[in-house]
Computed example of a mutant assay.
Amino acid sequence: MISKTGIQWTGGTYNPWYGCKKISEGCKFCYMYRDRDEGGVDPSLVIKSKKETFERPLKMETQTLIFTCSWSDFFNPEADEWRPEVWEIIKNTPHEYQILTKRPERVLQCLPDDWGAGYENVWLGVSVENQARLNRIDILKSIPAKTKFASFEPLIGEINISPAQIKVLDWAIIGGESGNLEGPYGFRECKLSWIEILVEDLEEYNIPIFVKQLGTHIAIEYDLKDIKKGGNIKEFPPHLQIREFPNGLRYVDNQIYL
């Protein structure tokens, strides 16, 4: 099986490699760094998964929505030698693969020769944590892909996205930062208004939106029961209880239906 996950917007995770280098503000309290540190493993060391894990999608018969490289970056330069084999796995399996990157400038040089207008089963996304990183959407615009999305998580600043940038997207994820209440892996402020502004702008252009979590800061501010993540949709303000998907997918009772 693909690894089970608490990430609400996917059916499971697949990690053909682990480890990554921090490259922008959103990386500061990276959950992969936290978990690898706690496990006594250097999180900056990029290592290939064992054969069983690397080839896991080939053994799955049921079509699944898969977040690919949840503990790394699919376009990490240190994984260049392994990526062609993963493209072959992706191409030859029935699953839907969600690939999210903070390195969109590397995507074009890392695509397979037969990519064309994009593999039908690949969703290509960029992380946008603040206004300074909106340029990642501009880069995404120039990359052919069947489904394009942005993850505004961890949202650590107000974002004013332009209509031209919104029109690049087929889907948007929004979430405040979660982290520990003490220790080196904390969390930063996310204001409810930052989420509301993004939702309002995206809704104007009918972009499917998935509000994943409000984050630890808002959870504390509003005394939510899910203090760690603020991820219980029943605790969201009604106008932010939005969990939509592109491509006709549905989300009902915490289950994703392809």
Rank of each mutant, 00 (worst) to 15 (best):
E25T: 09
S142F: 01
K102I: 14
C110P: 00
P84Q: 10
N15W: 02
C20P: 02
S193Y: 12
R56N: 14
L258M: 09
D253M: 08
I90F: 02
D35H: 10
G26F: 09
Y31L: 07
E61V: 11
D113H: 11
E81P: 01
E153M: 06
P16C: 04
P163V: 15
Q98L: 14
Y205E: 13
G231H: 03
F54L: 10
G248M: 07
R103C: 04
T5R: 09
K50E: 15
E196D: 12
L224D: 00
L249N: 07
R36G: 00
D223C: 06
I156H: 01
V128E: 10
G231L: 02
K234V: 15
S127P: 01
G176Y: 03
I23L: 09
A117W: 09
I89A: 06
K28I: 11
I143H: 01
G118A: 08
L202G: 02
L100F: 05
N92C: 04
E81K: 15
I195Y: 01
S72Q: 04
S49V: 01
E221G: 07
L181Q: 13
D223R: 09
T10H: 06
I90M: 00
L134V: 08
G231T: 09
K4D: 01
L140P: 05
V86T: 07
Y222V: 06
I220G: 00
G6E: 15
K50C: 08
R243E: 00
S178I: 07
K22D: 08
K146Q: 13
E153K: 02
V86K: 05
L214D: 05
